[in-house]
């Protein structure tokens, strides 16, 4: 009898504790402490890894049979439709912000910059992984061509797609921007990047989760601060649903 009561009170207690966690998360101080976890993980990871430590690269036969798409599968805006109808011949990637020489790069320009091909694993925040081959110029070589100004701290990527009516964007710091595997990919598995995967060009930032790999790139801007862009947290998901800005976790 006492055993039954104890067991029931345990279950009731556990449920109350779980509900208590939701109460705690609504308190702004508790929330601020909880959200400090991201900075702690970033600090620890950056201390444990070389600046240029590489993400694992795989053999061609280790690739996923199908590389699924996620998020926006087709931006569908009139501007994007026009670009896609012309096979992106009129598409230009505008590189600006805190740079000495703003650039407007066509797909052919991307192919003529120093390119890198890599077979890497894409890890979605939801938990799944898929392996594919990506090719494109290193972001570092593009930024060097544009001449980054000293005040620049972050690189912001603006996309052609609207997500829930708001423009998708993402940002990374200069450590990841100049990482040798950070590329502006225009090819997936040796073919032009399909629309579902971000045509004509998407970011690959291989030491972070999938939502950082902005698709349908239109602009790359060097900035001193993320304040004033979107809601100031450095990305669509960061602004709207509290995802971590540092997604190496």
């Amino acid at each position: 009898m006492s055993l039954l009561i104890s067991r029931r009170s345990l279950i009731v207690g556990a449920t109350a504790l779980l509900a208590g966690c939701d109460q705690v998360a609504r308190n702004s101080t508790a929330r601020a402490i909880l959200f400090k976890g991201e900075d702690m993980h970033r600090g620890i990871q950056r201390a444990l890894m070389d600046r240029d430590a590489l993400a694992r690269e795989f053999r061609p036969d280790q690739r996923s049979p199908i590389f699924r798409s996620n998020g926006t599968r087709d931006p569908g805006t009139p501007e994007y439709e026009t670009l896609a109808a012309g096979k992106f011949a009129d598409w230009r990637l505008n590189v600006g912000g805190l740079v000495a020489r703003p650039l407007a790069l066509a797909l052919t320009d991307l192919a003529h910059l120093p390119n890198r091909a890599q077979i890497t694993r894409h890890d979605c925040v939801e938990g799944w992984s898929a392996i594919a081959k990506w090719q494109g110029p290193t972001l570092g070589s593009v930024l060097k061509a544009a001449g980054l100004r000293d005040a620049a701290r972050y690189i912001v990527f603006t996309c052609a797609d609207l997500y829930g009516g708001r423009p998708y964007y993402e940002s990374i710091d200069l450590i990841d921007a100049f990482h040798p595997q950070t590329i502006l990919a225009w090819a997936l598995n040796d073919r032009m990047l399909p629309i579902a995967n971000g045509a004509p060009c998407r970011l690959r930032v291989e030491r972070q989760l999938g939502y950082k790999h902005a698709k349908y790139l239109m602009r790359v801007d060097a900035v001193a601060s993320l304040a004033g862009i979107g809601k100031g947290r450095g990305g669509y998901w960061e602004d709207n649903v509290d995802y971590d800005w540092y997604a190496g976790i």
């Binding site: 070389d50 430590a53 993400a55 989760l209």
Partner: peptide, 8 residues
Amino acid sequence: LSPGMNAA
């Protein structure tokens, strides 16, 4: 599970 730790 952490892509950052995979590199480290």
